[in-house]
């Protein structure tokens, strides 16, 4: 690991100041489960590391009737999984957290860190850049892309997948992230927090270099049937091959409105509005769920080695819908 300055602020404004003066060469440290690996591997070489863990206001989970859930950026995955209200209303979040199958990461990994963690693309982790460009072309195209994206936008050659398992569930639930920087605070819908970088220098989220995530705000979900389904090969520490989060507003037996977001299949969490439209006004059945799954993967553009992920995404959607509806998957 390369030497760095260490800042240990105790307030958000101190943290923001510590970041602002660096002009982008600093990294924010939460649980460190991702950042430290990146630094040890020399993929990230910040000149300054700004530790957030001494900032009390970033901690904790609370619930306010009518307003919903507030997750401090430093809330650990374990705190989230143990929280009574979360277990009652926000099952899709619990299921996403359970998927991270390591007690160690549950204990120290944070919700803010999960949203901001960097992609696991092995070209990026091997020090070849987020877009893995070589001679004007992404190496992912002709390389080994078995875990890469099956959806892309016209926005340039990004083939990594967004690694966050929480993001799809948060988007489906209509959550916002609150971020604070030198110019003040703003609230951003989680769906707009992520972006597909067009050039190597761009990040995969909209944070300015002096901004940090301070909290995540999730609307009440008592009336929302929500679930996450992840397709993972292993029970032990592993990444989903595809995942889907579903939030269904019900009107009696029928679905009133639906949000479906895919995870681990595109450079950003991937909402599928066309598929969502098939649900309102209908009762959930296995065959309807199957149809929605099929609609969700329309437009997928697999790479040379990952067409199987289309099928996995389809199954994830189907099973997430059935799980949300309380049916057997």
């Amino acid at each position: 690991m390369q030497a760095f300055e260490y800042a240990n602020p105790t307030t958000v404004s101190e943290a923001v100041k510590a970041l602002a003066v660096t002009g982008g060469s600093a990294a924010v440290l939460a649980g460190g489960t991702d950042l430290l690996s990146l630094m040890k591997d020399g993929v990230e070489t910040p000149k300054r590391v700004v530790n957030l863990k001494s900032i009390k206001e970033l901690q904790g989970i609370s619930y306010t009737a009518g307003k919903g859930l507030r997750l401090g950026a430093l809330a650990t995955l374990d705190e989230l999984m143990q929280n009574a209200k979360v277990k009652q209303e926000y099952l899709s979040l619990v299921q996403a957290a359970e998927g991270v199958r390591s007690p160690q990461i549950h204990s120290v990994g944070t919700v803010g860190g999960d949203l901001c963690q960097r992609p696991r693309c092995w070209y990026y982790r091997g020090g070849r850049g987020l877009l893995a460009m070589k001679d004007g072309k992404s190496m992912v195209m002709e390389g080994d892309n078995r875990y890469h994206a099956i959806f892309r936008s016209s926005n340039g050659p990004a083939f990594f997948v967004n690694p966050s398992s929480f993001a799809p569930a948060l988007i489906a639930l209509g959550a916002k992230v609150k971020v604070t920087g030198a110019k003040g605070s703003r609230e951003i819908p989680v769906a707009e927090f992520f972006r597909i970088p067009a050039t190597e220098g761009e990040r995969e989220n909209v944070l300015a270099h002096d901004e940090i995530v301070t909290e995540i705000l999730v609307p009440p979900a008592a009336q929302v049937r929500n679930a996450t389904y992840e397709v993972r090969q292993k029970e032990a520490l592993d990444w989903p091959l595809a995942a889907a989060a579903v939030a269904l507003q019900m009107d009696g037996k029928n679905v009133k409105s639906a949000r479906i977001v895919l995870g681990h299949v595109a450079p950003v969490p991937w909402p599928v509005p066309d598929a969502e439209k098939l649900l309102p006004g209908k009762a959930v059945t296995a065959s309807l769920a199957e149809q929605v799954g099929e609609a969700a993967v329309k437009g997928a553009m697999p790479l040379s080695r990952n067409s199987y992920k289309i099928r996995l995404a389809r199954v994830a959607v189907k099973r997430a819908i059935l799980r949300a509806a309380g049916m057997e998957v």
Binding site: R101, R120, Y123, G126, M139, K234, A236
Partner: peptide
Amino acid sequence: KIIDPVTGRMLNANMEFYKLAGIGD
């Protein structure tokens, strides 16, 4: 061992991507 056709490098040379079973597997 996953070897990258482009670079000739092993792509999964860490304990995260070199997948081994855990107790639940």
